[in-house]
Design a protein around this nucleic acid. Structure first.
Lengths: 351, 351
DNA sequence: GCGCAGCCTGCAAACGTTTTCTGATATCGT
DNA sequence: ACGATATCAGAAAACGTTTGCAGGCTGCGC
């Protein structure tokens, strides 16, 4: 019995597992199960006196209706799955926080799945949705999604009444309503700001190939240059990952090659900070020698010296839109194909 | 009809909502529903030929068993709730990532709830657990939990067969198996390191009052000083929040008051970085004038100059322990009251 | 040739709700 | 005072799965 001291066996005997049901409540209140259900559903077809007795019994027995029975009977649960690229990145954790809060407001639970940038996991996860009788699925991913092959599955789910939403990436041409941050316009605005402050030539640093948002931001950069009548210098466009180290390395290499540029637009704050560190390490002054603008508005950028100028995010607004859309969808209403959330240009010290 | 162009109405007519059930599969395979169930449950009491026919039908119809029906029948679902202080903090998002992955390995879904440091939300969330027929609840919070008043509720849940685990905070004296990082010992180790390198006096910066881990870390600091025969100087113990700004402010004030100390042990990386920034702003050299050690191992600390020496975390190990414990619990086995995960002392530049 | 064991499969009940249908009582108008 | 109507509450079916029980069939030993 010594082991009992440092282990815990929380599983009780099976007979103990009794949980109060609607019939227990009914018996105590002297009514039928149907009546209890009606009271709890808030139908006002129940006489006030009866309702009181029922509510009293519910309180006394601490009755909690079995969600599985409800879900089985109604054919639908109260859960929404959130599929996220990488919860560890602050963009996604901030998003998750606000989406969770917003869904909680309308009584929905959040089932979290972390894709870990593995797009092949998507199919399996979407297939689970049917079994789980989900209310909806929210996809939050910047990675390019193989919608071509996923489309039939998505349509089948939608036919089953599962509301599918995309956050951060436009998927509306596949029939998926999307809530996105401003990307192209935001990047263009940032580039324009650099042009206006006489910072041309502007280098561009981003994950472009496999990132949907990366591509959109890149278009904004191109548009701004084109608007100013400037030709894009391919040597100043650096396609890499989104990580800090990649930014550091790209900037180092550019300086080694003595490329001529007076500013940098980076498609993520991590990249921007990495690049900034490299520039500072080589004795350059930021923003005097090279101005830098990032993307995302992470906390770290606010505290670093010089503080990072960046296109911020608004996860709260996104969460609220998601909530409103679900509210609409549950009422059988329509929902906009696309909702765009503004990105504030947070002017700090680096540009 | 113009509106149809930019809105989407994904809800189909109700009659369309048909989803294949076990009877559909049974009919197609020419067997009874019971047999289908047996095949899917992996019971080998079914003849090989029959099993093949059933599996063929399952594939053809893309059958997915209704999780609600299963949950209702078996009295228990496949979901675990993760209650987190603040998913936006990297500590928690890293934890969440690994816990999710670990649970997925054993076929459990993760229901995420963000406490937002509001302990009053705990009760309501725990009450929901009964309705949701959860497999388990994982509490990941540094905040002090009012276990005194929650204990009856927790016991009731455990009696219902809900496995409750705590991450990061020892709750085993309330019958909740806990997986924790080394705190007291880690703080003592860090303080000892500072002593060994001749960095006394050591200032201590933390959220102490309302943080369970804050208290444990503080005990480590005290123990190390006591071990070295040094009296604690109350003026060098600064109790504040865990945020960057608090660290900056605390250090600024200490320098204004010309307090004498040659190093700082901070109970979070954010605090440490804030304090370091304040020191650098006043022209002090880190680590020469003041050495700094943080707690947590966040990414930012690795990139800042000087790079932050810190007690790291091991969320992966924690996730794996949680997985193993659930595996055990689902088999009706015992589980250790307490599991301690080591913190590596990541020696970088700041100390 | 008969009984018996063993293998496989079907029947039906059960999980806990919600909802439709129906019936009982009270209320009202004439 | 009688029938019509409104109001409330119960009985029972249904949601889709799992499982105990029973039964049919095959093969075997006697």
């Amino acid at each position: 019995m010594r082991q009992a001291l440092d282990t815990i066996a929380p599983r009780p005997a099976d007979r103990e597992r009794q949980v109060t049901t609607v019939v227990d409540v009914a018996r105590r209140a002297g009514v039928s199960a149907a009546t209890v259900s009606r009271v709890l559903a808030g139908r006002n077809v129940v006489a006030a006196a009866t309702r009181e007795r029922v509510l009293e019994a519910v309180r006394a027995l601490q009755f909690q209706p079995n969600a599985f029975a409800q879900g089985l009977r109604s054919g639908r649960g109260q859960a929404v799955a959130l599929l996220v690229s990488d919860i560890e990145q602050t963009v996604y954790s901030a998003l998750t926080k606000h989406v969770q809060a917003a869904l909680e407001e309308i009584g929905l639970d959040l089932l979290l799945f972390n894709l870990g940038h593995r797009q092949d996991r998507l199919r399996g996860l979407l297939e689970r949705a049917t079994a789980l009788r989900l209310r909806g699925i929210v996809i939050a991913s910047n990675d390019v999604i193989p919608m071509r092959e996923l489309k039939p599955l998505v349509s089948a789910l939608q036919r089953q009444g599962v509301s599918i939403l995309s956050i951060g990436q436009r998927l509306d041409r596949y029939g998926i309503p999307s809530v996105v941050h401003e990307e192209t316009a935001a990047a263009a605005r940032a580039a324009q700001y650099l042009l206006d402050t006489g910072r041309a030539p502007i280098a561009y640093l981003s994950r472009i190939r496999n990132s949907a948002t990366g591509q959109e931001r890149y278009r904004g950069y191109l548009a701004a240059l084109k608007g100013a009548g400037i030709d894009v210098d391919p040597a100043l466009v650096w396609d890499c990952s989104y990580r800090y180290a990649a930014g550091y390395e790209a900037m180092s290499r550019a300086l080694d090659r003595r490329l001529a540029f007076r500013s940098l637009l980076a498609a993520s704050d991590e990249l921007a900070l990495g690049a900034m560190a490299a520039a500072l390490d080589r004795g350059l002054k930021v923003p005097d020698d090279v101005a830098i603008i990032g993307f995302g508005g992470i906390a770290w950028g606010e505290h670093v010296r010089p503080a990072l100028t960046t296109l911020g995010a608004d996860p709260k607004a996104i969460g609220e839109h998601v909530r409103d859309m679900f509210r609409n969808l549950l009422d059988g209403g329509d929902v906009p194909r696309q909702t765009v959330v503004k990105r504030p240009l947070l002017l700090r010290q680096s540009a």
